[in-house]
């Protein structure tokens, strides 16, 4: 598996897109810090970008990589290598290289601006961790989609729809439900539904940590009330880990039953 991971990783590292992704974060970090000397505020701005962008890039790169490396996959399948290792290796290769672009791209400017001297170091660390976790989650979802759909166009369409659903539509439906059932106690319902959207969950996790109630919104307020900061953080990280483990398990399950 490590060998497959290595080839997947270097294949991506050599491609132009990894550099563009890395340079984007690098310049984003420097611009944010240049315009806004307060590291704390930069972290908040970054939060909104990371929450939308890492899932989008993870999803797109995930499907793209799967469809582009199908020839390679078929070549590997005829070799004495375990099936699940081929797919896990490819998955980890792409998720790691994307996460690396994120960590380095944002890490370098923030290091240069002295994040270690600032009190925001912990928040920044959490933010990067969440970005990496979201990458792992959405690459896994993308791999599942690509494994299910033979047709590239369908796969791409469905992948983008998945991202759109979690990033935008889910919140919309959620808000409509809250408005419609305004007269009922919705606290537990709100908590419950948040668990099913990794992007929402990440947003709450970071906001709880940053402690800015103005940005909390309805969901976050309930979350904080219900759990209290530390327990809330712990449980949401656990749920996010489930969001990685479950799709990855499904990748293994699905890949064992697929014909090539």
């Amino acid at each position: 598996m490590l060998k497959i991971l290595k080839y997947g990783f270097f294949d991506l590292m050599r491609s132009r897109w990894s550099y563009i992704y890395f340079l984007f974060y690098l310049s984003l970090g420097f611009i944010l810090l240049f315009l806004n000397q307060d590291v704390g505020k930069a972290v908040i701005t970054l939060l909104n970008i990371i929450l939308i962008l890492t899932p989008l890039i993870g999803t797109l790169f995930g499907v793209m990589y799967y469809y582009n490396s199908r020839e390679f996959t078929e070549l590997l399948l005829a070799q004495p290598i375990k099936r699940s290792n081929i797919f896990l290796g490819q998955y980890l290769g792409i998720a790691l290289s994307l996460s690396l672009s994120l960590v380095l791209g944002l890490g370098i400017p923030f290091l240069a601006y002295g994040i270690f001297q600032s009190s925001e170091i912990f928040n920044f660390f959490i933010l990067i961790l969440i970005g990496a976790m979201l990458t792992f989650i959405f690459v896994a979802l993308a791999f599942n989609i690509a494994l299910i759909f033979e047709d590239k166009i369908k796969g791409f369409g469905f992948a983008i729809l998945t991202w759109l659903f979690f990033a935008v539509i889910y919140d919309g439906i959620f808000l409509i439900l809250l408005l419609v059932f305004d007269d009922y106690p919705l606290d537990k319902f709100a908590l419950f539904t948040t668990v099913f959207n990794p992007i929402d969950l990440s947003r709450i996790l970071i906001l709880l940590k940053l402690d800015i109630s103005a940005l909390l919104g309805y969901t976050g307020a309930v979350f904080q009330n219900f759990f209290g900061t530390n327990f809330g953080m712990f449980s949401s990280i656990t749920v996010l880990s489930f969001w990685i483990v479950l799709p990855v398990t499904f990748i293994i399950y699905k890949s064992k039953r697929k014909d090539f």
């Binding site: 294949d11 050599r14 491609s15 490396s69 199908r70 020839e71 390679f72 078929e74 070549l75 005829a78």
Partner: peptide, 12 residues
């Protein structure tokens, strides 16, 4: 040892 029908290779 297997020789597939159509030679598909990583293009890059």
């Amino acid at each position: 040892s297997y020789l597939p029908q159509i030679a598909y290779f990583p293009q890059n």
